[in-house]
Amino acid sequence: MESTNFLWDLFGRNVWTVLAVISLPLLFVLVYALIAILAELKISAWIQERLGPMRTGPWGILQPVAEVIKLLQKEDITPDQSSKLLYNLAPFIIFTGAYAAFAVIPFSSAFVPAGIDVGLFYVFAIGSISAMGIVMGGWASNNKYSLMGAMRSISQLISYEIPAAMAILSVVVLTSSMNMQEISSMQSGGFWNWFIFGGPGGWSKLWVIPFTIGLTIIYFIASLAETNRVPFDIPEGESELVAGFHTEYSGMKFAMFFFAEYANMFVVSAILTTIFLGGWNSPFGDFLQGPWWGVFWFILKSFFIVLLQIWIRWTLPRFRVDQLMHVGWKVLLPLSFVCFVAISLFAMLN
């Protein structure tokens, strides 16, 4: 394996560096989750012409910290008739699924926790583990709302995994690689080489650009559905199902679900950034290009996608179940097939 991890170059491969490599993304997720929660609170408030939290710290920036402390103090309730083992295991499985995806996310040209060659495949496989956690949590709670939320979540996940997979597959066709680090390095040299604009190539790529842009949008919509966010939040629609699959969870276990949702948001944004928006590449060629600037560009782009998700959440109302299925199977799937065929044709002719 080529050197894609600066920690191994610096300190060699031993137990401590492995631990550091494992915990570095965790540290990042913790800080990111606090920022994302604050962004969610503030942007929702501004869209509704409110101020949002203003009392905890200057302009309320300590509000997410206060909420985490509050959740830590809350009583941990386990329903009497629930299946105890599954009930207690579910939040950890969901968070494991969300966090395991960070293993292959290339934060910079010099840092990816595990630079494996089947990165994209791995992300998709791991993404389904959180679905397992949702079913476990919903079923074990012994609550009709939880069970219905879990069922809806699974049907939604199955419907939207396919267009997302088609979008990723198209990029794999273009790059002939599933290694996310390689896909990132292929897109260097300015935003014109990003896969949202057809990837590197001459003027002959012009006719494929509408299809790649379409695939980016399709992947983004599918990723919204995968992370159970509005307008695809029918698994946890408050007005219908109380809180969906995590109705019965309280305290720290609820915090784990919450945390996993935000981690998942970042994972799908990071994948979108890596495969379509150039990963850690600077949008201006060699300007501000480098391992450290790579971290900056990667987090900036990913966070922009996260903000886009938050923005959409506070704009659109929730889909009905039949509308959700209509969009998934009758719109996104055929369109992604068409785009896939077009891109395959392009890759073949090139």
Binding site: A45, I47, W311, W314, T315
Partner: peptide, 26 residues
């Protein structure tokens, strides 16, 4: 239908983004 669904979503996002920078009523 697809086109109108897409453009109306963008229109809605334009409306909400204009409210982000409006003065708060709080």
């Amino acid at each position: 239908n697809i086109w109108s669904g897409f453009t109306t979503a963008l229109h809605g996002m334009a409306i909400t983004s204009s409210h982000i920078f409006a003065k708060s009523v709080t």
